[in-house]
Amino acid sequence: MAQSVMEKNQISDEMILEKLSQKSTINQGFSWLLQKYKERLYWHIRRMVHQHEDANDVLQNTLVKIYRGINNFKGDAKLYTWLYRIATNESLTFLKKQQRQKSTSIDNEELNLNNKLKADTYFDGNDIQHQLQLALRTLPEKQHLVFNMRYFEEIPYKEMSKALNTSVGALKASYHHAVKKIEAFLKKEN
């Protein structure tokens, strides 16, 4: 697909949507979408599910869902907001499924997380990064999600509110609590 080879920062959402709107160019449009958003979506998912293998599975499911459901995109929100919503839902579904499968006690869970993180081939964070990752895993899912979107991805509350279908006030409050909890965790550990 020679036509689809294009610098990702040259591709606008309008161009992608135009290609996606026609049956004859839908694949090219999707290729552009992948080029532009695959990495951002990957990191969004990875920060939720932590391990690369899990992130890869969730990303693939997300992208296939996007391809199959592209006709459902109404255009009333930004393309990225819609993509984020699907990636978030997929991540949360994955985490819920994972939680159901867990049979270990809460005490062992923290130890398992620690070991898993150390065993993750693709994680070579320094001590403070390691501590931060551990702290993030102690947060409830939605606080974790809001924290990632604000702290790492710097997404404005208004955009977050559209992607997560929650009020700005609730998001601010969730972020506040998440920050406080992480601070307490890190201070306790150091």
Binding site: E141, T166, G169, A170, K172, A173, S174, H176
Partner: peptide
């Protein structure tokens, strides 16, 4: 939103998690 912002520290985080 204004209420939530004013009372940001006092809102039960569990309640926030549930109301989504």
């Amino acid at each position: 939103d204004a209420y939530l912002e004013e009372n940001i520290g006092e809102i039960d985080p569990n309640l926030l998690e549930e109301t989504w």
